[in-house]
Design a protein around this nucleic acid. Structure first.
Length: 874
RNA sequence: GGGGAUGUAGCUCAGUUGGCUAGAGCGCUUGGCUGGCAGCCAAGAGGUCGUCGGUUCGAGCCCGAUCUUCUCCA
């Protein structure tokens, strides 16, 4: 059975059991400070389990894109070494939210694996929670009995808390789980050692494929367990492993999920998979990583130098590194795999097909830049090598290797490889030491302590009412303190709030919380999952009182102008540049709007003008806002609403329309009641921020007016300066021309003057033994001309020895120049001469033996300099 | 968020412990030569040495601040 068929079969199977199919949520996580990427199928249902939200469907099935780059079995550096771990993988899952429980979950899992997929029962083992004394939990007898009705008892394994009790975190929903393992060894091997002994023992051919979690407890802060009012089922089956089991392969990479990619790489590299352990690892690394990179970029995460973007960059670079070292790719190659990603995964994950060109471009740029980094590192390493050779040493110090890695991004394994090739070794312990120090520095700098929530008023739902109100009577549900190096910050949650939390690019509201005894400033509002958190200047003294929550209306209203303008801008860009325009990021605050979008190439002046004109035309049309909340997502899409890739949408969405034939977007932000309120939109800049992504900044209403006024004022001032010419541009051009010709003229005059002085000086040379001596006082316009004059005299007179005392812009300066040959033969040194003479002008100086200069403070000393020089040499 | 590096001609880069008149290669302009794969020769243009401030007689170089880009860590 093909992988595609296996996936669709899973979904259809659960659909036939009344499950709702839900698309994968984005692989990149937003609004959760504890998580950068989706790492399990349950992430998007977290709020349902936590009770923050009521599940929209009682039964759900899905295939979730996941990414894991850290954790005990998912260290990035390990992926590809074995045959069954991945960075990006799909997690198939079926879910019950307060609906069916253990019986159905177990029976259906078995039915699907054996009857539908045809896995033979004698290769399967199941595990059941054995109980735990510490938590005072009995074994999961219910699951055990259910399994016993299906499989022989000797195929049921009792598992410890570590393997068979699942917890989301230190606190929260949890429960026993039951795992299904499959033994994929040959019959001979199976006969010699029973599979049962190998379950949960890291055997590469005896692996867990499905985990059925039965959530029935809530772990509370004191560590104890409480029964949940409703029980849930959360299952997760690693898709890649399932495919391998069904296709009877000994490695995930031998399934048709990966073989087309390996074949393509074989073609490109001329090397074959399965011939050499090192190159095999390289093949696996690349075909694994290209998936991770493509999917995260499709969900809007571009490689960058911090946070989630940095994780992507590291994965991509690891793939390039392996290709470079073991498969001989010296040119970008990863990007050429993206069409295959699109064709193999585009059906279930349309985002990788629709954005294939963009993904390819981003990867290409990133590969190119890394190859540059590598080339640069190789150069530096060459230097290091020759330095070592010169010192007759053969160990690259850890500090040096670390510098190469830390500052220049050159991978350690490459350093070590090249070192070996040149008979050098590498001080790896020293490197580790430096690395540790780096980590400690970073940790110390970003240490923060999150205090526990202090509950004030119990309240279940937290309600946002800011679309309709800017003021409300609210109670504080809870508050806490977060401390880091910069000090303490205070967070407050309200039972209902008009404050908009930062989201969709729009900044969080500011304002005040006012009770009868105090007034507290709200400096920002942010989301934490679905919680709305107000950042306040100080904690309330009487938090139990009722507060009037008041949004800063002026700021909100300016922000709304910019947000609506952003929508108008996006549509205008589409109509001027084409339908490939997609939002890549956005910032909307009270000052400006910033809009990032996919587009290749710089926008021309004409295009910018067209866009600006179109947007302003729409403003003048005074189009009223049509806001619809709780629109079924399918309906919204059929109405042509613009949705974002990488955005998590629920079943119901909010639609913001300004002229149904012009701008229809899914958006949670706040907007003006009609477009004319925006007044004026002015684009202030257009530029590139990364491969294939352009950024436009614009201002609206009062800011736009102020900007135009400033420009006008500036022009006015310039006109006045120029005595109000008819054509300012021409006047300035004329001025510049004149300035240039005058500059040249001055240069000519200086030259003339200098040559006058020079010819005068040439006459004053005195023959003294076999050298030509000149000691003179001159007046010159600048220091440069003194230098020039000295050099010219030296060049024109044989065996010249020149001492010039110059007055330059009311400052005394001395220059001494000596024909090179005299320096040695006469034992003269311009540096020491000039230092001696500089005493007379209260200064100091120096230079080289043949030429030196000095400056000083006492202009009157110049005559003494001449006298003294004559005394010494005359 | 923290550490390190980087910014010099249109491009790629040199530039020693502060002191050669700020250079090289490629590119550009002009002229000359030339049947040969990056044609050759000659002349020339092109630089606020990222920006601002400081130290110094003197700063591309040293110090401080700031911005750009790269890079590692969190």
């Amino acid at each position: 059975m093909e992988a595609k068929k296996i996936r669709s079969t899973f979904i259809e199977f659960f659909q036939s059991k009344q499950h709702q199919y839900v698309p994968s949520s984005p692989i990149v996580v937003k609004n959760d400070p504890t998580l950068m990427f989706t790492n399990a199928g349950m992430n998007q249902f977290k709020d349902a389990f936590l009770g923050n939200e009521i599940a929209k469907f009682p039964r759900v099935a899905n295939s979730q894109k996941c990414l894991r780059v850290s954790g005990k079995h998912n260290d990035l550096e390990e992926v590809g070494v074995d045959t069954y771990h991945h960075t990006m993988f799909e997690m198939l899952g079926n879910w019950s939210f307060g609906d069916y429980f253990k019986k159905e979950a177990i029976e259906w899992a078995w039915e699907l694996l054996t009857d539908v997929y045809g896995l033979s029962a004698d290769r399967l083992y199941v595990s059941v929670f054995e109980g735990d004394k510490g938590d005072n939990l009995e074994m999961d007898r219910e699951a055990f009995e259910l399994w016993k009705a299906i499989v022989p008892e000797d195929r049921i394994i009792m598992g410890s808390k570590k393997d068979n009790f699942w917890e989301m975190g230190d606190t929260g929903p949890c429960g026993p789980c039951s795992e299904i393992h499959v033994d994929l060894r040959s019959d001979a091997e199976r006969a010699s050692i029973p599979g049962k002994d190998l379950v949960n023992n890291d055997h590469p051919q005896v692996i867990e494929i499905w985990n059925l979690v039965f959530m029935q407890f809530n772990r509370v802060a004191d560590g104890s367990l409480k029964s949940l009012p409703a029980t849930h089922v959360d299952t997760g089956m690693g898709f890649e492993r399932l495919v391998r089991a069904i296709q009877h392969k000994s490695s995930n990479y031998d399934t048709d999920l990966f073989t087309p990619f390996i074949a393509e790489l074989e073609k490109k590299s001329g090397k074959s998979y399965g011939e050499n352990e090192q190159t095999d690892i390289a093949f696996r690394v690349i075909v694994d990583h290209i998936r991770a990179i493509s999917f995260t970029i499709a969900d809007g995460q571009i490689p960058s130098n911090n946070k989630a973007g940095y994780v992507i960059r590291r994965i991509l670079r690891r793939a390039v590194r392996y290709g470079y070292t073991f498969l001989g790719f010296n040119e970008p190659f990863l990007y050429e795999l993206t069409p295959m990603i699109a064709s193999n995964f585009g059906d279930i994950f349309p985002e990788v097909r629709q954005q294939q060109e963009f993904i390819s471009k981003v990867i290409f740029e990133e590969e190119t830049s890394f190859l540059r980094t590598l080339a640069n590192g190789l150069k530096i390493l060459d230097q290091i090598k020759s330095e070592l050779k010169a010192k007759n040493e053969n160990v690259i110090p850890g500090k040096t290797a670390f510098e190469l890695y830390d500052t220049f991004g050159f991978p350690l394994d490459l350093t070590s490889l090249i070192a070996r090739e040149h008979g050098l070794s590498l001080d790896e312990a020293g490197f580790a030491l430096e690395m540790e120090a780096q980590k400690n520095r970073s940790r110390a700098a970003s240490e923060s302590e999150t205090g526990d929530w202090v509950m004030v008023h119990e309240d279940e739902g937290v309600e946002f009412i800011g679309y309709d109100f800017l003021k409300s009577d609210s109670n504080i549900v809870k508050y806490r303190v977060i401390s880091d190096k910069k000090g303490d910050r205070y967070q407050v949650v309200l039972d209902k709030t008009p404050f908009y939390a930062e989201s969709g690019g729009q900044v969080g509201d500011t304002g005040w919380l006012i009770s009868d005894s105090e007034k507290i400033k709200v400096v920002d509002t942010k989301k934490e999952n679905d919680l709305i958190v107000h950042f306040v200047e100080k904690l309330p003294k009487s938090p139990e009182k009722q507060f009037s929550a008041e949004v800063d209306q002026h700021r909100r209203s300016l922000t709304m102008n910019n947000h609506t303008a952003t929508h108008l801008l996006q549509s205008a860009l589409k109509s001027v540049l084409g339908d490939h325009i997609q939002q890549r990021g956005s910032l909307v605050n009270d000052q400006l709007l910033r809009f990032d979008f996919s587009h290749f190439g710089k926008m021309t002046e004409e295009e910018i003008e067209k866009v600006e004109n179109l947007v302003n035309a729409k403003v003048r049309e005074n189009i009223p806002l049509v806001e619809r909340r709780n629109v079924p997502i399918e309906e919204a899409k059929s109405l042509g609403a613009t949705a974002l890739f990488g955005e998590k949408y629920g079943e119901f969405v909010r639609m913001i329309t300004f002229d149904s034939s012009y701008s229809v977007e899914l958006c949670g932000g706040t907007h003006v009641p009609s477009t004319s309120q925006i007044g004026l939109v002015k684009i202030t800049s257009e530029g590139s921020i990364s491969a294939g992504v352009r950024r436009i900044e614009a201002i609206t209403s009062v800011a736009a007016e102020a900007y135009l006024r400033e420009q006008e004022q500036l022009l006015k001032e310039i006109q006045e300066l120029l005595k109000n010419p008819k054509d300012v541009k021409k006047a300035i051009e004329a001025l510049l021309d004149e300035r240039n010709s005058l500059k040249k003229e001055i240069e000519g005059l200086h030259l003339e003057k200098a040559s006058g002085i020079k010819s005068e000086l040439l006459k004053q040379f005195q023959r003294k033994d076999d050298l030509n001596l000149l000691i003179a006082k001159v007046e010159l316009p600048n220091a440069d001309s003194l230098k020039k004059l000295a050099y010219e005299l030296k060049n024109e007179v044989e065996n010249a020895f020149v001492i010039l005392a110059a007055a330059i812009e009311d400052k005394p300066q001395i220059a001494v120049i000596i024909e090179d040959s005299l320096v040695g033969s006469k034992n003269l040194n311009a540096g020491s001469i000039v230092r001696e003479l500089a005493k007379e002008i209260q200064g100091g100086g120096g230079g080289q033996p043949f030429f030196a200069t000095a400056g000083g403070k006492d202009l009157n000393g110049l005559d003494r300099v001449v006298l003294k020089a004559k005394e010494l040499f005359g």
